[in-house]
Amino acid sequence: MSFDIGNPSIGLVFWTFVAFLLLLFLLRKFAWKPIMEAIGEREKSIEDALTSAEKAKAEMARLTNENEQLLKAARAERDIILKEAKELKDQIVADAKTLAQAEGAKLIEQARKEIDDQKKRALAEVKNQVSSLSLDIARKVLQKEFEDENKQEALVADLLKDVKLN
């Protein structure tokens, strides 16, 4: 019984060629291509998922950080605003005070002026009254005086006595 070592049978060589090449062709088309693509895609999607998770984590950290920053800034701003408001309030109060004082002073001044005016007017009126009264009195007195002819002549004589003709 001879052994195949030195004499590979042509039929087996031929059929192995056919079978292997056919297998290679069919598996390449219907198995290896879809399988390798699916594996590749899955690996890519896993990698993408991991990368995006990493990114999301970084984004999260960034957001937290930003939030903290914002909070800090807001707090600082609030403090500033409060401080400013307090200052403003003080200012306003101070301003109001000065304004009120000025206004008061002005009012007082005005009042004083008014009073002075009134006084002056009153004094003028008093003066007028006094003058008219005195005129009335004088007229009445004169009327009285002129009723008595003798007295008038005496007076004129008296006045003429004083007048020295030069």
Binding site: W15, A19, L23, L27, F30, A31, W32, I35
Partner: peptide, 24 residues
């Protein structure tokens, strides 16, 4: 020239068939 489907060829065809079945 002997191109017979021998035992080895038949067995190989069976393996090829199994591989195609499994991997498709």
């Amino acid at each position: 020239w002997d191109f017979s489907i021998t035992k080895n060829v038949a067995s190989m065809f069976l393996s090829v068939f199994l591989l195609l079945l499994i991997f498709t």
